[in-house]
Amino acid sequence: MPYFKTSQEWLDHSVALLEARPSSTRVTTRYSIKPVKPRKQTTTTSSGDESTAPLDPKPPRGSLVLKTYDPASGVTLKYRTTKAAEVTRLMSAALGRLGKAMAGIQDVPEETMQDADAAVETPQGEQTPQQGAAAGGGGGGGGGKKKKKGKK
């Protein structure tokens, strides 16, 4: 379950996963709110003004996690952010592009191919279930699928 450092990387891999398994892959967006623990004043060892911050409760913080998951192969791709500035772009452009891929619309332009560093980020865990599925479903189709995944 890797978290990607950039949303672009996440999007690229997600598009690749969707192209490989358009019918079973889902994209989940989780917006969660967690209360911030008030910082205690007991830390006398640490210097600086921060440790003496007032105890009044800070407003709770939200975070956004985008997850692409394919239940058939068990591949999970994640991206997390806490920045409000990214919401519009993620929800509209990124999810929109994935929505198009889901719908099977092909006019999505192929942008930014990142073969070199993409290979590093590809999770190792996804290979095993892929191979297992391929063995059951017929060698030819499975082999092609695997290759496609590895490349992206």
Partner: peptide, 26 residues
């Protein structure tokens, strides 16, 4: 529906942006 996707995501992003108020401001 496929032909509604573009318009949907524009509204979708607007609603989400308005709703996700607890993310860090710019």
């Amino acid at each position: 529906q496929p032909h509604e996707l573009e318009a949907f995501y524009v509204r979708y992003a607007d609603v989400c942006k308005a709703g996700m108020t607890l993310l860090k401001p710019r």
